[in-house]
Structures are given as C-alpha cells and as structure tokens.
Simulated assay, not measured.
Amino acid sequence: MPSALITGITGQDGSYLAELLLEKGYDVHGMVRRASTEKFDRLEHLRDRITFHQADLLDQRSLVDALRAAKPDEVYNLAAMSFVAVSWIQPTLTAEFTGVGVTRMLEAVRETCPEARFYQASSSEMFGKVLETPQTERTPFYPRSPYGVAKVYGHHITVNYRESYDLFATSGILFNHESPRRGLEFVTRKITWHAAAIKHGRRDKLQLGNLDARRDWGYAKDYVEAMWLMLQHDRPDDFVIATGEMHTVRDCVQVAFDEVGLEWERYVEIDDSLKRPAEVDLLVGDAGKAKQLLGWEPTTNFEQLIRLMARADLDLLAK
C-alpha cells in the first residue's frame, strides 16, 4: 500500500485529493495545524480513514516529526495562505507560509525521506501581469500580489531542490479551480452562494469588485487527478493545469443567477473597495504539455462547474 502525506488536507484541494488517493488504495496522512476550533467540514466523511499529524509550515521540527511518522512515498504540499486578497493585509505572513514554508518542507523531506516524490502547489497568480497569452510552463512570471510573489519563490525553490539534490520534486502550475467545497471568500463561491441565498430570501444583494477580470476556471476534482498523475510520471517536471478557456466574473454571475432562476442585474452591486490594489486582468493556460505527457484533460467545463456549485448551494441553504 503506497502512502501519501498531504499538507493543507482540510482545504478544498486537500479533501478531493484525499478522496482520490483513498480510492486508489493509499494509506493517507494529513498534516493539520493546531487550532482552538478544528475545521474538518470537508473531511467529515473521511476522517476515520486518514491519519492526522499536527505540524506547521512555520515550525521545521514539526515537519520532520510528521514526515518521520507518516513515512510517505508521496508528499503533496498544498498548504499556504491561499486567499490572494488577504495577502495584501498580511504580506509577511504570506511570505512565510506560502514561500519560505516550501523550503522548510523540502528541507524536511531531504532529511527524512529523500526518496519520496514531492508535489508543490504552484499557481497561475505567478503570471500576474501576463507577458504572453495563453500562459505555458515557459511564460515569464510577473506576480501582482504578495501571494503571487510568494508562490514564485515556492516554485523556484522547488526547481532548485530538484536540480541541487536530485529530489523528485514537481510543481503543478494550477489555474483557478473551484467546487462546492471552495471557501466563501473566493469569488466563484461567493457568487453561487449569494445567488442561492437571494433565491431563498436570505440575502437581498451581492457586492462585487471587478466584473471584467478574466480567468481560466476548472473543477478542483479534475485538477487533483493531475497532481497525482504528475507524481506517477517517470521524471519530475513542471506542468500547467488549465482548461484553456477564459471567462469573466460577469459570466460567472450570469450562469449562477440563471441556474437559480433570477435576473442578476437586479441584485449585483459594484463595490470599489473590493478591487485589488494591483489587478490581474486575465489568466488563461495552455495545458498541452500535461495532455501530451500525462494524458490529462479536464472533464467539466465552466458552465457545468458554476451550475453544479449553484445547485449545491441551493441544497445547502435549503437545509
């Protein structure tokens, strides 16, 4: 039975990845931070099948202890300060978790289990003010947020450890990926939840920032399969994971409100305070390399995804 350790296992991607690995017969271990109120909502149906280890990306010793206990064949580093907007409010903490935390994790792997295969969750936010469209593995980075800058560091340090210490260290440059398990602070889930809440009479408006921002949105369940495929490949490499289709925030609003049977213009208000200090206007990825080398392709398109999320939020709020 292969074993895997997932950092950030309580998040959207971590929960889907845990499901996938359990289906494939893995012994799944999850790294969790100590908190006064533990949040296992996304893992409630899996909790008795996962071994949890308390550790923190800010504490090197705890990472070594967790890896020694888990003895993983694969390590998926998904933990980070994952919300871009907060990275302007807490830029130093974002750098510590999302950037330097990757180095601590790689050092711990190098010390305890250098034969393990390592996956780093890189991000399309690294491209920021894009220098070419679509973005590929060779597109230069131009991050436009403290989060993006920290992700660039995490990405490059992973490449550096791969080349310096011959670690099997791979980075997945994932474009936006969503699901009903997405946090409410993320724009897609904010939209689908509010559409459902307005339908149920629990809210009367939705405030948004930039409706014209364009993104490449995919389904998180598809994207965690790509993570797994990267670690089954015969050599470590970096892969863009994306749908290749671009949609605006406005498109997301239109689909979500259509799914719940409402006219969106009556309920959506623009709030300039919600706009980013430095906007990322468009992101769209070319996943041709992943298709060619890993055989990966997305199975859920944008409209299917937003309708799926809106229906899930209608059901959630109906309860």
Results as ranks from 00 to 15, higher is better:
314 L>G: 09
4 A>G: 12
305 L>S: 10
201 G>E: 04
255 V>A: 01
87 S>F: 01
25 G>Q: 06
61 R>L: 14
166 D>L: 02
14 G>I: 04
68 R>A: 13
45 H>L: 10
20 L>G: 04
117 R>D: 02
64 V>G: 02
124 S>R: 11
258 D>Y: 03
152 V>R: 04
146 P>D: 00
270 I>A: 10
133 T>W: 06
133 T>Q: 09
89 I>F: 09
223 Y>P: 07
7 T>E: 03
76 Y>G: 02
309 M>R: 05
22 L>K: 05
308 L>H: 11
288 G>C: 13
242 A>M: 12
288 G>A: 14
249 V>L: 11
61 R>I: 13
240 V>E: 12
33 R>L: 00
155 H>T: 08
9 I>M: 08
26 Y>M: 00
203 R>N: 13
319 K>Y: 07
109 V>E: 00
290 A>F: 10
99 G>K: 08
159 V>I: 07
208 L>C: 13
110 R>S: 03
33 R>I: 00
11 G>C: 07
101 G>N: 03
168 F>W: 14
18 A>F: 05
91 P>D: 06
58 L>E: 11
293 L>R: 11
304 Q>N: 12
286 D>Y: 13
87 S>H: 01
173 I>N: 12
11 G>P: 11
78 L>E: 02
228 W>K: 06
109 V>C: 02
171 S>H: 07
217 W>M: 14
134 P>S: 04
192 T>Q: 04
15 S>P: 04
157 I>R: 00
54 Q>C: 06
13 D>I: 02
36 S>T: 14
51 T>W: 06
246 M>P: 01
12 Q>K: 13
211 L>W: 11
216 D>H: 13
122 S>L: 03
236 P>H: 00
293 L>W: 10
253 V>M: 04
83 F>P: 01
93 L>C: 00
116 A>M: 08
200 H>R: 12
142 Y>E: 03
264 W>Y: 13
166 D>W: 01
31 M>Q: 09
311 R>L: 14
52 F>H: 07
217 W>C: 13
40 F>C: 07
242 A>V: 11
155 H>S: 06
194 H>K: 10
49 R>M: 08
77 N>C: 10
215 R>N: 08
126 M>N: 07
297 E>K: 10
267 Y>S: 03
165 Y>T: 04
153 Y>R: 02
96 E>G: 00
260 V>T: 08
243 T>H: 05
180 P>T: 11
100 V>N: 05
21 L>F: 03
226 A>C: 02
107 E>T: 04
218 G>V: 11
256 A>H: 07
88 W>A: 02
195 A>I: 01
107 E>V: 01
3 S>L: 05
309 M>K: 07
69 A>M: 03
257 F>G: 05
66 A>C: 04
239 F>K: 09
165 Y>S: 03
288 G>K: 14
